[in-house]
């Protein structure tokens, strides 16, 4: 069980995929996408972990201890804010869809069905 962090990230992605394929409510679809995004962020951060490392901050850092990689953390910070922005946009679209159609069921909104 050395890779428990990767397993947790993949389980989060799996839970989000289950929500995407088995739910119809648009809000639940948005929640599923957010869970997938959390899993991907956790995967990225855990890829940069060094065994026994501390956070890459030199304020009162214990000397002689390795530090985890800073670049995945910085890029994950960017990804989190972009995910927040897309979640806000998704929720606004859901509000407008509910206002115009009176339903949140994805199966009943059929204009774009191929």
């Amino acid at each position: 069980m050395g890779n428990f962090a990767f397993l947790a990230a993949m389980l989060l992605v799996g839970i989000g995929l289950w929500a995407l394929v088995s739910r119809r409510n648009l809000i639940k679809l948005a929640i599923g996408l957010s869970i997938i995004q959390s899993g991907v962020n956790l995967f990225l951060v855990s890829l940069g972990y060094v065994r026994g490392g501390v956070a890459p901050i030199y304020t009162y850092a214990p000397p002689g201890v390795p530090m985890v990689l800073p670049t995945p953390q910085a890029l994950t910070l960017t990804a989190i804010v972009i995910g927040l922005a897309t979640t806000a946009l998704m929720l606004a679209f859901i509000v407008v869809i509910y206002r115009h159609r009176g339903t949140l069921d994805a199966g009943k909104i059929r204009e774009l069905k191929g």
Partner: peptide
């Protein structure tokens, strides 16, 4: 879905060890 999740979990197990 089960196939995809199983693939993801298998990948997580067979990745490089966590922490290196």
């Amino acid at each position: 879905l089960l196939l995809v999740v199983g693939f993801l979990l298998g990948t997580a197990v067979w990745l490089r060890p966590f922490g290196s």
